[in-house]
Design a binder for these strands. Structure first.
Length: 538
DNA sequence: ATAGGGTTATAC
DNA sequence: GTATAACCCTAT
């Protein structure tokens, strides 16, 4: 009766849960072990597909590996299975998004964890994560610019004031994207002209026109004059050419990320972990017991039935088999009170406050028709579009936390190993949130209402705004499926780069080529490269 | 991920 | 109209 099993192992988790993160991991496992919110609903259609996900682990004190099993099961088989609560998945994602995980693994996680379409905090974290990836890959591009605009849009929707550092970052990235076009072909002013039209006359002027002025600073306006002057004034142009816009952009993006990290604060799991573990000490007795027990298991067999493992963790942490994650949440303050001497600081009180409000949020959701929510999530996930436009992945350096990660070469090797380990047996994959959709905005315009509806708002009141509805990044990808990209002719530079790259990397290694020259092949896919080569050699 | 066949847009 | 380039779909 088992219709489908997809197993995905995530081999690089050692980097995630080395010692500093160890304390965070225990509550995480705990969540997994207690995430068995629902068993099946016998009244529902037995052929509905469900997600089953369990965290599994084999770990020692030094390192840890975790894998996920992802099963599609007919509902009737789920009597004794556990289904992860979509809120728990949200917490986990929220936590993981701020961790130094490679892009590829992050994508996998986003794909396999059930995801609530209206968890808006996650959306912002995904956007921030894109920025971090861009910084790490050193690929500051117009996509970065677009992401910043999306964050601005998000902040606006949620009434969040925009940091100066965000305006600075937007400014620096805009300048870099423009100047990069000039540096690419210093003699071809047309290239530069196009960039100016696209970015400064397009994006930025559009924002002004729509009174979306959150990102438009005075400095940006001044720079626009200068950038445009460079079009006809050679001196200004040369001056612009000497600037290290790339470093400026990276620097200001980092400052922005630091600021915004403070604003959004730690993830719920981190708060929970701190409160539970009291300043990150993990080797208190019950947990020590747990560690030893698991090591023993690892020694015996690394292929232990997963559920046993979970149950053991739950037991050792002092909770019996209640299935509601909410229980855990509500016990949190109580757990904290057990150690008043170590954690009764104002800082921790703040954490507890935050925890309480998160608890309330959760309760609000749980009171709703949770089984329906789960069903919905399962169905959405199962029916997601197949489209896949992979972002180029090179490396994931964590810039702002000073955590060492392997060099590019090592990372590429690791990625190759990932590829052998990551099996996608189903052929059904959800589009990734990490992958940018270059054509999409956060909103979908409703054609019917373009003429009739005015959505008034105090700051942007003048333009008639079509009725808009928030579309989750997941849904966006689905829309894009039917639309053909606009044809973009290959530039001579691209052609020459491709010739050189094929000489260097060999014909057929399109992914490698795209990764290596992603700056030149902006907006191209591996298939594009392959097709272009076919055209060039015909 | 890649190859190869198919479709659509554009230049002539 | 046709030829070609760019893009898309799908099997492996």
């Amino acid at each position: 009766m088992l219709t489908h099993v997809q197993t995905i192992t995530l081999p690089n988790f050692e980097t995630l849960f080395t010692r500093p993160f160890f304390s965070l991991f225990l509550p995480l496992l705990h969540f997994f072990s207690r995430s068995s919110l629902q068993t099946s609903n016998p009244h529902t259609n037995a052929f509905d597909l469900h997600l089953f996900l369990s965290g599994t682990g084999v770990f020692s004190k030094e390192r840890l590996k975790i894998g996920f099993e992802f099963h599609f099961l007919p509902l009737s088989r789920l009597q004794h299975r556990k289904i992860i609560d979509i809120n728990v998945a949200g917490w986990i994602l929220e936590f993981l998004l701020s961790q130094p995980i490679e892009d590829r693994i992050m994508e996998t996680l986003l794909n396999i964890l059930p995801l609530s379409n209206d968890d808006s905090r996650l959306i912002k974290r995904v956007l921030l994560r894109r920025i971090l990836s861009d910084i790490s890959n050193g690929s500051v591009s117009e996509k970065t610019l677009e992401t910043l605009e999306m964050i601005e849009e998000y902040d606006y929707e949620h009434g969040i004031a925009i940091f100066d550092s965000m305006r600075e970052a937007y400014h620096a990235v805009a300048v870099h994207c423009t100047v990069m076009c000039l540096k690419e072909k210093p003699d071809d002013i047309r290239n530069y002209f196009d960039a100016v039209m696209r970015i400064w006359r397009g994006r930025i002027s559009d924002m002004e026109r729509w009174e979306r002025v959150g990102l438009v600073s005075e400095r940006l306006k001044d720079t626009r004059d200068e950038i445009e002057e460079a079009l006809w004034n050679v001196n200004v142009r040369n001056d612009v050419l000497t600037r290290d816009t790339w470093n400026d952009a990276l620097k200001s993006l980092r400052v922005f990320l630091t600021d915004v990290a403070e604003e959004i604060g730690p993830s719920f799991l981190e708060i929970a972990a701190k409160t539970m573990c009291g300043k990150g000490k993990v080797h208190s007795s019950p947990k020590k017991l747990l560690v030893d027990q698991v090591e023993e298991r690892e020694a015996c067999s690394s292929d232990v039935p997963r559920e046993d493992f979970n149950v053991n963790i739950g037991d050792h942490l002092g909770h019996e088999g209640s299935d509601m994650a909410i229980d855990f949440c509500m016990e949190m303050p109580h757990t904290a009170n057990c150690k008043p001497s170590t954690i009764a600081t104002p800082e921790v009180r703040k954490v507890q406050e935050a925890l309480k409000s998160s608890t309330l949020d959760l309760q609000a959701v749980v009171e709703g028709p949770l089984p329906d929510t789960l069903l919905l999530a399962a169905n959405i996930s199962a029916s997601m579009a197949i489209e896949e436009t992979k972002n180029s992945l090179v490396n994931q350096n964590v810039v702002d936390k000073g955590i060492c990660v392997p060099s590019v070469e090592e990372s590429v090797k690791a990625v190759n190993e990932d590829e052998t380990n990551t099996r996608n047996q189903s052929g059904v994959s959800r589009p990734s949130l990490m992958v940018r959709n270059s054509t999409a905005r956060t909103y979908e315009w409703d054609e019917d209402s373009i003429e009739s509806s005015y959505e008034g708002s105090p700051n942007r009141p003048h333009l008639p705004t079509p009725k808009k509805r928030v579309v989750s990044p997941l849904a966006k990808q689905e829309i894009r499926k039917n639309t053909r990209r606009k044809i973009k002719k290959w530039s001579p530079l691209e052609e020459q780069t491709l010739r050189d790259a094929v000489k260097e990397c060999g014909r057929g290694n399109w992914k490698l080529i795209l990764d290596r020259y992603h700056e030149t092949f902006e907006e191209r896919t591996v298939v594009d490269l392959k097709d272009k080569w076919r055209n060039m050699t015909r």
